[in-house]
Design a protein around this nucleic acid. Structure first.
Lengths: 223, 223
DNA sequence: TTCCTCATTAATGTATACATTAATTAATTC
DNA sequence: GAATTAATTAATGTATACATTAATGAGGAA
């Protein structure tokens, strides 16, 4: 055990590599040898190998022996695939949340994140908005009480993280978005799973359309 | 490199451990130390460690240091979660397949597996039926042209494999099942994505209900 | 008998040496 | 100059030694 916080070097490597990938320091499309990563992380190759296997399973990189570990870049097709699944599973989560008949107290975090988004839009604080938006979606999926949906959604959100951060500062300030969040909240409060599913599906579909158009209009073929 | 067929011991370990898990030889709920598995597979601990990390990511086992690698057993709740996702994503796949406007030639494999199922039911050959059924579902998802849906569905099918094999010999011979397969095929041929989605959703939902009831009535709490 | 402490054991995580293998470079042939 | 072969280099996969750590068992005190 080399690091108190992470209990093992493998776990630290997973964490640190994720940070490097999301920050763009390990840029999408670049290749890195095990030995390079091991040096960079100041540990032997063994935990680095273990970490890269785990990150490959998360879809963040591809292990290519002798050519280097490639940090995966998403193509437009990748984005389409991911958002097809994300839209579907989050909409299912919304329906399940509505079916669960939560009382208002159980929905506090959801309501709070909507308010936070409102404040962020008023202040034109895009970073705060993005955080509150992520909190809303995360909480929505948690309310489905299906841990597997949570795992898949979380993983796909990791994969699109760079694209979302890239577009955060070039997209229009989200005005309509929160109306849809509120409508979804209301549908969940009233236990209307059909409405919840549709509202969220439309919300996600338009968000997806905007994301892909932005990337396209800025000539970002891979991100 | 120790094994020609698999290029590496790690890959062979993944393969062999999967076989052992699906066959029940490594029984659900049992714990196994790295050293035990290494002996069993006749290799050192290193590739075994790598393989168990990969299989953990596939949801087939849980790595529990010093307590042993636990072969995961599915509870009724697990089954619910898995089938919730499977139903949703396969139904999406069905809709995408219908949207794709395939010509009949492209749907040959789908049609063939329906015929194979018909023959299997006539012959009361449950194993052949199960194979044809799996082929049908696999082909359906492939027709969606979304590799991520394919990966998720494939992985969840792995997780429920033992449960399905367990119930294969105690369930009623599937008569109605193939009617639904044919109806789905027709909906895809005619490009009716709404019908495709609904037909498959109903098909999957009743199959799920039957599976969980069978496990329940036989007192199988975990499988 | 129960609880606590300490010693022992063994399982794990890691670093490293080494055999294998793939890629690159150099030398030779046409 | 291009193609082929041979030699060299380095990246990988693996086994193993070892340090660390968690679990277990033994012994002693209350």
């Amino acid at each position: 055990m080399q690091d108190e916080q992470f209990k093992s070097n493998t776990r630290r490597a997973v964490h640190d590599l994720r940070e490097l990938i999301f920050s763009g320091e390990l840029a999408a499309g670049t290749d890195h040898l095990e030995s390079e990563l091991a040096e960079r992380l100041n540990m032997s190759r063994t935990p680095v190998r273990e970490a890269t296997l785990m990150l490959e399973a998360q879809g963040l990189l591809e292990v290519r022996p002798r050519k280097g570990v490639r940090i995966l870049a998403l193509s437009a097709d990748d984005m389409d695939e991911i958002y097809e699944v994300l839209t579907e599973l989050e909409s299912l989560a919304a329906a399940l949340a509505a079916d669960a008949q939560y009382c208002k107290k159980d929905l506090n975090i959801l309501a709070q994140s909507i308010d936070d988004m409102e404040v962020a839009v008023t202040n034109e604080d895009r970073v705060a908005w993005a955080k509150a938006d992520a909190d809303f979606h995360h909480e929505l999926v948690r309310l489905s009480k299906n841990s597997r949906i949570m795992a898949i959604v979380s993983n796909f959100n990791d994969q699109v993280r760079r694209a979302r951060m890239t577009t955060l500062h070039i997209r229009p300030l989200p005005q309509k978005s929160n109306e849809e969040h509120r409508a979804l909240y209301d549908a969940i409060v009233s236990g209307d799973s059909k409405a919840a599913r549709e509202i969220h599906w439309n919300h996600r579909t338009s968000a997806r359309k905007m994301l892909t158009e932005l990337l396209d209009s800025h000539g970002l073929k891979r991100v």
